[in-house]
Structures are given as C-alpha cells and as structure tokens.
C-alpha cells in the first residue's frame, strides 16, 4: 500500500470518526439500558419468590442464547411488522441493551451473592428494611465488585455495536463500506483504520474503568472478586 493510498484514506478519517460517534452513542445507550435492567433482573433472581426468579432466569437464558443479529431483526423488523414506528438506532439500543442485560445480570447476581449474609443481618438489626439494605449495604458493595467483569462486558458490547450494521444503522462499518464501494482500492486500508480506532477506544475505555476501580477501591472488598479472561463472564 503506497503513501498515496494512505493520504487518500486520511481524507475519510473525519467521516469515519463521525460514524464512530454513532457507535459510541449506541454503546452508551445500550450499556445504560443493560445496566438498569441487569441490576433489576439480578435483584429479582436473588430476592424474589421462586416463580418470578425462574422467569428472570429464563429471560437471562433467552437473551444470552440468541445471536445478536437475530435479536436485532426481531426488534427492528418484528416491531415494525407489529405496526410500531421504530428507528433502526432505537431498535439496536433495545436489542443489544436487553441482550447485554442478560450478561450484566449474571455479573451483578454473582456480586450480590458475594456480600456476606451476616452484613444483611446486621443491617436488619439496625432496623433497615429490605429496600434500605439493598440500597445502602448490598448495592454499594456489589457494584464495586462488578467493575472488573463489567469492564469485560463493556469492551465486548462496544465491538458488538458494529452489528447494528445488519439493520441499516449508519455506524462505522456501514460508513466504511460506503467509502470502500466507491473507492475499491481503499477497502483494505479503510477497514484497517477502523480496526485501529477500535483498538484505541477500547484501550481508553479500559484505562478509564481501571481508574474508576482504583478510585472506588475499598480495602478488604476485593477478596470475593475474580478477574475473568473470558469474552464475558
């Protein structure tokens, strides 16, 4: 690949960066949806009576067992077919967000269960009810313990935002395709540039989360947490 080709690619960098902004927006929206839903699902799994807990486990199992693309299609074309006017971006947030909640709920469930039961008893002995115990004793510990596995989930879903390509969201891979179709010789360098952008952003994201973990670190709380090498835990 000659220097000339790379200088041509360089022209498209702003376009690609704008498209990457879509991925980042998608990431933030879906991870927030997944976080809130995931915490709720985890709390249901741990604290609610059996039928409801079983339902939450089934939810988790469904969203973890079905491919992202199938979920994207179900949410986008399925909801459209049912007469809902839904944008591809919003459908992607829902599909990928609920999927992520299936993984995040597992992370939070593990963290919630690792808070020693004696502390729950201590909270009750002070007169705290269930909601206060969850809010002041369980979640502050569980959320801290969740940060390392959650970082894994974070970088995994960031990469998966590209799958929104499948339902027509003009995110970075689709933008790169548009460019490469019109400028065939640029195909390889353009996609290498895209890959490089992901490497940099993933690195920055993990660095930021590492900092967050350090800032929120509490002596004695790290004992139950395990770092995972897996794609996601």
């Amino acid at each position: 690949m000659t220097a000339e080709i790379w200088s041509q690619v360089w022209q498209f960098t702003p376009t690609l960066l704008w498209a990457m902004l879509i991925n980042v927006q998608l990431l933030l929206a879906l991870i927030a949806l997944g976080l809130v839903t995931g915490v709720v699902v985890a709390l249901i799994e741990v604290y609610s009576p059996r039928p409801l807990a079983a339902l939450a486990l089934a939810y988790e199992w469904f969203f973890r067992g079905v491919p992202e693309l199938v979920l994207l299609f179900l949410f986008y074309f399925g909801l459209t077919q049912m007469g809902m006017d839904i944008s591809p971006f919003f459908a992607a947030v829902l599909a990928l967000g609920f999927r992520s909640s299936g993984y995040q709920s597992q992370i939070f469930r593990g963290a919630i269960q690792s808070v020693p039961p004696g502390q729950l008893m201590a909270a009750h002995s002070l007169g705290m009810g269930t909601m206060k115990t969850i809010r002041y004793v369980i979640l502050p510990q569980a959320l801290r313990l969740s940060i390392p596995p959650w970082s894994n989930e974070f970088s995994a879903v960031f990469k998966d935002t590209t799958l929104a390509y499948g339902i027509g969201v003009v995110e970075i891979v689709r933008q790169a395709r548009y460019i490469s179709v019109r400028n065939f010789p640029l195909t390889l360098p353009v996609f290498i540039l895209v890959a490089f952008m992901f490497l940099v952003l993933t690195y920055l994201g993990n660095w930021g989360l590492g900092r967050l973990e350090q800032r929120l670190h509490v002596p004695g709380l790290e004992t139950h947490a395990k770092r995972g090498e897996a794609r996601e835990l």
């Binding site: 004696g118 502390q119 008893m121 201590a122 002995s125 002070l126 502050p140 510990q141 801290r144 709380l221």
Partner: peptide
C-alpha cells in the same frame, strides 16, 4: 422496634465498604 435494640454479632458483621 429493632432500631431500639442494639445487636452485637459474634463475627462483627461490619459493612465492608
């Protein structure tokens, strides 16, 4: 009523965080 009774546990059960 619990809030008017203190309870001290064998294994302390302080809140770790």
């Amino acid at each position: 009523i619990r809030s008017q009774m203190g309870f001290v546990f064998q294994d302390f059960n302080l809140f770790t965080h």
